[in-house]
């Protein structure tokens, strides 16, 4: 076995198109996403950014009419190939959704559910995982005395951080965040943003956002999508200060979207 240095790119998409029935929602996306960085997907509603995100952990499989062509490689493995085990794939790539969706279970159970399913049955180790995940999600201090209470008793912002903790508990490599703060108040949003920045040390993060300021604040690279196409993909600072494409410029200066 030869040991190479870690490749910089972790997700590599080539000619990725996503169709819903006859309709093409995403067209020929080619992009490389860097390891341990925050990549933001921006663009107006319906531009395909969420669709692309959801094809990265194959959540689109849930939609019967949905079809993905091209290749999406994670660490060199095509995730759509037949020998990929979808449960394993989703262990590697965690996802947090637009609206917080904690299970109708206790706070503890929300976190412990997946690790236990994936084979961690030792009670002490589970406790550790729960605590560690909640700490990383900056939620531990707020909930440590009420772990047995229903997760639905938490505030909206806390619920969303719980969902992030739940994803972290799987020890994923990549986290996909689909507009995680769009339903939250400004203070909760700020907490989520701080959390995202602290998490990139350990995880590769791809975040879809409506909020351009948010993208500018927290991401290393930004991809701008329009009508299913990748218009521009660059370092965040470059994209926001000197965009190459005039559509990008029009969008970030607020002329549409």
């Amino acid at each position: 076995m030869s040991v190479k240095t870690l490749e910089k790119t972790i997700i590599r998409t080539r000619d990725v198109s996503v169709y819903y029935g006859e309709k093409r929602a995403v067209s020929n996306i080619r992009m490389d996403i860097d390891r341990n960085s925050v990549t933001a997907f921006i663009g107006p509603s319906g531009c395909g950014k969420s669709t692309l995100l959801r094809s990265m952990n194959r959540m689109n499989d849930l939609v019967p009419s949905c079809r993905v062509t091209g290749s999406i490689e994670v660490d060199g493995t095509d995730i759509n190939s037949a020998d990929v085990n979808i449960e394993g794939l989703r262990q590697v790539i965690g996802m947090v959704f637009q609206r917080a969706n904690p299970f109708f279970k206790s706070i503890y159970e929300n976190i412990a559910f997946a690790p236990r399913f994936h084979g961690l049955t030792d009670k002490r180790k589970l406790d550790e995982v729960v605590e560690e995940s909640l700490r990383k999600a900056a939620l531990w201090d707020e909930v440590k005395d009420r772990l047995r209470e229903s997760a639905l008793s938490l505030s909206g912002g806390q619920q969303q951080r719980l969902c992030i903790a739940r994803a972290i508990a799987m020890q994923p490599t990549i986290l996909l965040l689909d507009e995680p703060a769009s339903a939250l108040d400004p203070i909760s949003t700020m907490k989520i943003e701080e959390l995202v920045m602290s998490l990139k040390e350990e995880y590769t993060i791809v975040i879809v956002t409506h909020n351009l300021h948010q993208a500018a604040r927290i991401s290393d690279k930004t991809a701008f999508f329009l009508m299913g196409e990748l218009i521009e993909y660059n370092d965040t600072s470059t994209l926001f200060t000197t965009p190459e494409n005039e559509k990008t410029e029009a969008y970030i200066s607020g002329r549409f979207g």
Binding site: F97, F103, F104, A114
Partner: peptide, 27 residues
């Protein structure tokens, strides 16, 4: 049962059957 419950579970790499039994049925 809200669809988001099912999505949450599947996104954690839980199999469909276990999702049904442990997440959807209780809800």
């Amino acid at each position: 049962v809200p669809r988001s419950q099912k999505e949450a579970s599947l996104a954690l790499g839980i199999t469909k059957w276990r999702t049904i039994v442990s997440v959807i049925l209780p809800a």
